[in-house]
Simulated assay, not measured.
Amino acid sequence: MGFPTVRPRRIRSSQRIRNLVAETDLGPERLIAPLFVQEDAREPVQIEAMPGVYRWPVDAVADEAKRILDEGIDKFLIFGIPARKDEEASEAYNPHGVVQTAVRKLRKELGDRATIMTDVCMCQYTTHGHCGIVTQSGGAWRVDNDRTLPYMGKIAVSHVEAGADVVAPSSMMDGVVGQLRRSLDEAGFTDALIMGYSVKYASSFYGPFREAAESAPAFGDRRTYQMDPRNAMEALKEAELDVEEGADILMVKPALPYLDVIRLVKEAFPQYPLIAYSVSGEYSMMRAAGERGWLDEDRALLEAMYSIRRAGADAVITYYASRAAKLLREFDGRVF
């Protein structure tokens, strides 16, 4: 059977019908808001490469989280920018460090109304900007995978002690999820969740984030530990290893350039929640185009969020979280 009996336009004839048959849902419960906290800031610091995104003083981050919570978003991913850095990222696991202090304030102010997630890494805390302990031999440098792991465990434990619900190791060190699970269990935190940065590519789309977090490498790059953008099947191996090591939630990062990978991972591991991280470069491109009038930014950001959900992501980490939630509420499905 075909035309004129079959007329697909009939199910597009009105907004009510389009909403009725929409295959993909999107609401505030599917969004996670990243927050940058700067230890020595006295007022919000505008991030030049990410218009509308700020580094928040420790004393102000709870108020910003409350504002976002009022938009219906109750999940936050916390990144810290310390006042002091050293070779071993000692501020990353300092119980009175920037993330630990911010998490305690958030937990006190928000109680159980919010899920607090924390980024577990060393790049913001090291003088060299790499995600682990750097060693040198014969003039060559390398990030020492196995020496880095115990530090990652210490960071995670300090975050959960402060009140974090979910820890997310972003270093892409081999074995890091297993290290966190052992460290957390040994400390008595058997209920703490691990969100693996399971599939994290060495992407050019991280540029604005590195300005935001002051985490650009002082030398070299991260291609020896982050994934090659040319590879997709490798993502399944990385995700499988995280599952075997005890990850509760999987992640693909970035999102829009890797929709095919999101689909692959979701189909391979349908029983595991999958988060897609729509990264800083994705945000900044749409913001720049929107500011210049080159596209309808509101429609574009919702279209992007729906495409990520359609690919298979259960939730999206996005710097547009608050704006997207507001648009979803105001448009009530009418945008499409």
Rank of each mutant, 00 (worst) to 15 (best):
I249C: 04
G246P: 10
A235W: 03
A255C: 01
I249F: 06
L259E: 07
I249L: 14
L259K: 09
V252P: 11
V252C: 03
A255S: 15
P254T: 07
E240L: 14
E244C: 05
G246Y: 04
G246A: 05
E245M: 09
V243Y: 03
D248P: 02
L241E: 14
I262Y: 06
L236I: 15
L250D: 02
L250P: 12
K237G: 07
R263K: 15
R263Q: 13
L259F: 07
A235K: 04
K237T: 15
E244M: 12
L256Q: 14
L259N: 11
V252G: 10
L236G: 03
A247I: 02
K253M: 10
E234R: 04
Y258F: 15
A255D: 05
Y258P: 07
K253E: 14
E238M: 09
P254Q: 08
I262N: 08
M251T: 11
E244G: 04
V243W: 03
K253A: 14
A235Q: 08
E240T: 02
K253S: 11
V261D: 06
L250S: 09
V243F: 00
R263W: 11
E240K: 14
I249V: 15
P257M: 03
R263D: 15
E238N: 12
D242N: 09
I262W: 10
E244T: 02
M251D: 02
L236T: 03
P257D: 12
D260C: 10
K253G: 06
V261N: 05
L241V: 14
A239F: 03
E238C: 03
V243H: 01
M251A: 08
E234T: 09
L241Q: 11
K237S: 13
A247Y: 05
E234C: 06
E245S: 14
E240P: 00
E244H: 08
E240D: 12
V252T: 13
A239T: 00
A239E: 01
G246W: 09
Y258V: 10
I249D: 05
V252L: 02
P257S: 08
I262C: 05
E244Y: 06
G246D: 09
A239K: 01
E240F: 08
V261E: 07
R263V: 02
A239P: 06
M251P: 09
V252M: 05
D260T: 00
K237H: 14
E234V: 10
E238R: 10
A235C: 01
D260F: 00
L259G: 01
R263N: 14
L241C: 04
A247P: 07
L250K: 11
L250Q: 00
P254C: 05
G246L: 04
D260I: 03
D260K: 00
E234D: 13
E245C: 05
E238L: 02
G246K: 04
V243A: 03
V252H: 12
E238V: 00
I262E: 05
A247S: 14
L236P: 02
D242C: 15
A247Q: 05
P257Q: 11
E240G: 13
L256E: 12
A255Q: 06
K237E: 13
V261K: 03
E244S: 10
A247E: 04
E244F: 04
D242P: 14
E234L: 14
E245R: 11
A235V: 07
